[in-house]
Amino acid sequence: MPSVTHEALVELFKNRPTLAAEMLQDALGQRVPTFTEARVESSDLAEIVPSDRRADVIVVLLVGEQQRPAMAIVVEVQLGVDPDKPYVWPVYVTQTRARHRCPTWLLAVTVDEEIARWSARSIDMGHPGLTLAPLVLGPAGVPVVTDAEQARAAPEVVVLSAMAHGQGEAGEAIGVAFLAAAAGLDEERRAVYGDLVLSSLSAAARRTLEAMMKSGYEFQSEFARSYVAKGVEKGRLEAKAQAVLAVLDARGLEVPAEVRERVLASTDVAELDRWIRRAASVGDARELLATTGS
């Protein structure tokens, strides 16, 4: 099953169809044809590849009024060594080339340098002169985005930057640049991208960024305000959950694992308040979760 990181990277390339071409040209120095539109196409290659196999993202660069395909890019997010990929990647490329009748490139994307080196190995097809050399975007190739205007213009790039460089010295500056861009995103992307950026930063950078958001820093955005509010609410819930368990513990009652997990997982303030009151009178911790009583 694909990991959260895998799916997040896939979404970046789907949400910004030009991203694959931008990374090929700006980060990897490959010459990409001039195009008028970049379109994400179906990645289902079931005609040749088994139905449980499909490319992560297929982007087609289109030109002219007729929207003629100028080039296709097969984007594959790679987070680990997979011995099947040297066999299926060439199929993705040839099938996409046959479907869209245009030059087709393979772009492997990873956030791990070791996997980047593995992904870049040439694939010998066994036919004389036929070798596939994957183009690889690893952490070293991802730009470090610390400029607010650049982040606003390409929010997916600053998220990618955080995932690649968030643990380094530039992590804090990348986070601040993202905050500048967050206000211009729709609610869903703001939430998803915000979680990705914050989870990618080093602990020190994340603490600094959170402090800046709480203090009303000039780059504070709707995302920042909602993030702080969510953090305050989470702290409130955790405090009440701990209060429930503390009362039970003080009374010498044994708390089964299922009860403890249920209390700690609650996101209902009224429910937790009710449990605090019940914890003072129940004879068994299991009675706490009864739906009757106050």
Rank of each mutant, 00 (worst) to 15 (best):
D147I: 02
I48Q: 11
E41D: 11
T291I: 10
R39H: 12
E218Q: 12
E65P: 00
R262N: 09
P17T: 08
L196V: 03
L160I: 02
A8W: 15
H100A: 02
Y217W: 15
V145W: 10
L248F: 10
L24G: 01
F219L: 15
A280H: 07
V247L: 12
K230E: 15
A170V: 03
R277Q: 07
D124F: 06
Y92S: 01
V111I: 14
T5D: 15
L106I: 01
R189G: 00
P155C: 08
A205V: 05
G168S: 14
G29D: 08
V88P: 00
S202G: 10
R31H: 15
A162H: 12
A164D: 11
G129P: 01
A183I: 05
P86K: 06
W275T: 01
V49E: 13
S43H: 09
A153E: 14
K240P: 00
G184Q: 09
R31P: 01
D284M: 12
V244E: 10
L248H: 08
Q167C: 11
E76A: 10
D195H: 09
L12H: 03
E156F: 09
T146H: 06
L130I: 08
H6D: 14
V142G: 00
W89M: 02
S42Q: 07
A98V: 00
E188H: 10
L62H: 04
S281H: 15
L237R: 02
G252H: 06
Y87E: 10
E222M: 10
Q67C: 04
P134T: 02
G231H: 01
A108E: 10
C102A: 08
L137H: 04
A257C: 05
T131D: 12
L272C: 00
S266R: 01
L107M: 04
R16I: 08
G252M: 07
G231V: 03
A246E: 15
E188F: 11
L248P: 00
A151L: 05
K230S: 09
R101H: 13
T94H: 13
A243I: 03
K85G: 00
L107N: 02
D112A: 08
V93Y: 11
A151F: 10
T292W: 14
A183V: 06
A270Y: 10
M212F: 13
R101M: 11
G141T: 01
A116I: 02
A224G: 02
L61Y: 09
E233H: 05
T131I: 12
G194T: 03
A180I: 06
E156N: 04
R262T: 09
R117Y: 12
S42H: 09
V4M: 14
A241C: 03
R53Y: 08
L198G: 02
E187V: 03
P2D: 14
F13S: 00
G29F: 11
G171T: 11
R31D: 15
T94F: 15
R207P: 00
